[in-house]
């Protein structure tokens, strides 16, 4: 018997013309995902991409798997239905900062809380791309946009903090063009049973160009990125001489330099991805005071929602025996008229 044909990146690409603007960060993410698929050993027929509405949500059209480009904000609910109907399917959800955190914020909250087994990719470009550049719930304070010509005045939402607050069991962050970082991260997200939430810093060169340059630019990246790994100290900087030390009195991090003021590696906080308080502190770190955490911030698996649903169903079915509707119809109080 022949071994199943080994799939390649091309097998996961469709014949559809990709319609993102030149230079859009979405291209890099798409390539990364298409390249990852064959490595995951998944089949095309069992893979489903579900999305909402936005530039990012066009993603399913470019994946040669099953795909559903749905309506604005509702992809988490649609994906939940897909999984409820067929738990065997491997479902990816692609959403944007507007789609997933504004109109769809409620659904995002609940899909994470329920822990539906999905890989959720949130493309955060801190702007509404598709509707031509209005500010979004993740836009930085003061963002000038067609709807905020004098600068936005409302506080931005931090997606990873939101996810942690909602009870997500897998929360991670990565960067559109950093394929090397993103690939293993997505692989882990895929392995994780339950909802895996991945915020991807994504550049929109047309409406919000360069907002993530500080973490992407080779010159500054070493100072602005904190690449977290389970069990490893929280070190950063060009020669990894800087680190985060926990100030137990203020319950906050402080940036310290190894070798200065007697600081050694022993003083540096070690990443424990099963710790939720730590994940929350990491998610909150912002430049310029701190480097921004990328990597798996939190991972503590729990039984997924759909598994629990089906477990309950099989318990009931085992107890009640074979279902017979004609019998059920005749249950309760009946009487015969001759």
């Amino acid at each position: 018997m022949n071994a199943p044909e080994k799939l390649t990146l091309k097998d996961f690409a469709t014949d559809q013309e990709v319609r993102w603007c030149p230079g859009c960060g979405d291209y890099a993410i798409l390539k990364c995902v298409q390249r990852l698929m064959p490595e995951l050993g998944v089949t095309r027929e069992n893979t489903v991409f579900v999305s909402g509405i936005g530039c990012s949500s066009r993603f399913p059209y470019y994946m040669n798997t099953y795909g559903f480009h749905t309506i604005h904000g509702r992809a988490p609910a649609i994906a939940t239905g897909v999984k409820l109907a067929n738990p065997e399917l491997d479902v990816w959800l692609v959403t944007g900062d507007g789609d997933g955190l504004s109109i769809g914020g409620n659904h995002m909250l609940h899909v994470l809380r329920r822990n539906v087994d999905l890989q959720i990719l949130l493309f955060n470009n801190e702007i509404y791309g598709l509707t031509k550049g209005q500010y979004s719930p993740t836009s930085q304070l003061g963002t000038r946009s067609p709807s905020t010509p004098d600068g936005s005045v409302d506080m931005p939402l931090n997606p990873c903090l939101f996810a942690l607050g909602a009870g997500a069991r897998f929360v991670a962050r990565t960067i559109d063009t950093d394929t090397k970082h993103m690939t293993p991260l997505l692989r882990r997200a895929h392995e994780h049973k339950g909802a895996s939430f991945i915020e991807i810093y994504q550049n929109c060169p047309v409406y919000n160009d360069g907002i993530f340059d500080y973490v992407k630019d080779k010159k500054t990246a070493a100072e602005t990125r904190l690449v977290v790994e389970h069990g490893k100290p929280l070190l950063f900087g060009a020669d990894r001489q800087k680190g985060l030390r926990l100030n137990a009195r203020t319950l906050s991090f402080e940036v310290v330099t190894l070798g200065e003021d007697g600081v050694t590696e022993n003083d540096i906080m070690v990443h424990d991805e099963t710790s939720k308080p730590l994940a929350q502190m990491l998610a909150e770190l912002k430049t310029p005071d701190f480097p921004e955490a990328i990597g798996v911030l939190f991972c503590r698996p729990e039984q997924s929602y759909v598994d629990s649903v089906y477990q309950q169903i099989s318990t009931v079915r085992a107890k009640k025996g074979i279902a017979d509707l004609n019998l059920l119809l005749r249950e309760g109080h009946t009487w015969q008229v001759e």
Partner: peptide, 25 residues
């Protein structure tokens, strides 16, 4: 015991969307 999965969604929109997702599946 019948071939039915029930789902109390977070709102009516999520309910109809989950139903649509199920039909797609």
């Amino acid at each position: 015991e019948f071939d039915i999965v029930t789902f109390q969604a977070e709102d009516e929109i999520a309910a109809v969307c989950a139903a649509i997702g199920a039909s797609f599946a």
